[in-house]
Amino acid sequence: MSFLDVLYFIIPSAIFYAAPLILVAIGGVFSEKSGVVNIGLEGLMVIGAFVGILFNLLYADTFGAATPWISLIAAMVAALLLSLLHAVASISFRADQVVSGVAINLLAVALSLYLVKRIFDKGQTDFITERFARYNVPFLSDIPVIGPLFFTSVYNTSFFAIAIAFVAWFVIYKTPFGLRLRAVGEHPMAADTMGVNVARMRYIAVMISGALAGIGGAIYAQTITNDFGHATINGQGFMALAAMIFGKWHPLGAMGAALFFGFAQSLSIVGSSIPIIQEIPNVFLLILPYVLTIFALAGFIGRANAPLANGKPYIKGQR
């Protein structure tokens, strides 16, 4: 296998694994930029995956080829509703946001498995019939080198995820809404003084994170596993959290980190059929994203600073 062949093999699968991570990591950026820590991303992804698969199985006959896309909407709504629980706890009830996130994670897995067993009478769902299709982008896939790398047998969801990253960057850094969002996360009291409704901004941010995490979970389930069981998501949400931090709480940084982690994941899965890489023990590829995140946080790879008010409930009038 030549080097280029290896790239043709590995890059598309890296992008394919990265797409859900990008969306969920961007969701995390929104939430944490507003000052709400969201450890619950994993759980929100789980609910997204479950509802996505369930909707797909139930309505595949009605909607035909459009089913996976409509499932994304269903998944988005479900995860958004669950994220409201996190929002209420951490914004209105002043709960410890990490603890609330842990509760969301436990709840999401338990609730979706409970429903799977109730509906299907077994530990996992059936396999879906309508899934996202791979296709070659016309014309673009004929470009030498770039064509086979980025435009051959791709999923539309990957383009969608990358587009969302740019939209998120624009919203957070170029719009008044984004300015308020960041202000609320850095110095809520100053924002409040200037007439920004801190609680409302944070609610919106957490709901956006829920919506994106739900879509991410549904994409993961409908492209990679094609069914839902207890191990479907298995840490992808935490990997997205890692991507968010490694990307320094910046939407495009998070996208880059997610692409890189997708690369590491796909290497650990398909790497055994590539020379050189098959010499590296699998475990190093598996732990790479986590180790890198620790290095990034420790400041070995530039300084990663969280939004200043991240994790602190805002109590009016309290200094």
Binding site: L85, A89, F93, R94, A95, D96, V99, S100, V102, A103, I104, L106, L107, V109, A110, L111, L113, Y114, K117, R118
Partner: peptide, 18 residues
């Protein structure tokens, strides 16, 4: 399904945190 207990545990954590 046994998951009902996990749901109960998650809800308890949620309330204690709140």
């Amino acid at each position: 399904p046994i998951e009902i207990v996990e749901i109960v545990i998650a809800v308890i954590i949620f309330f204690v945190a709140s």
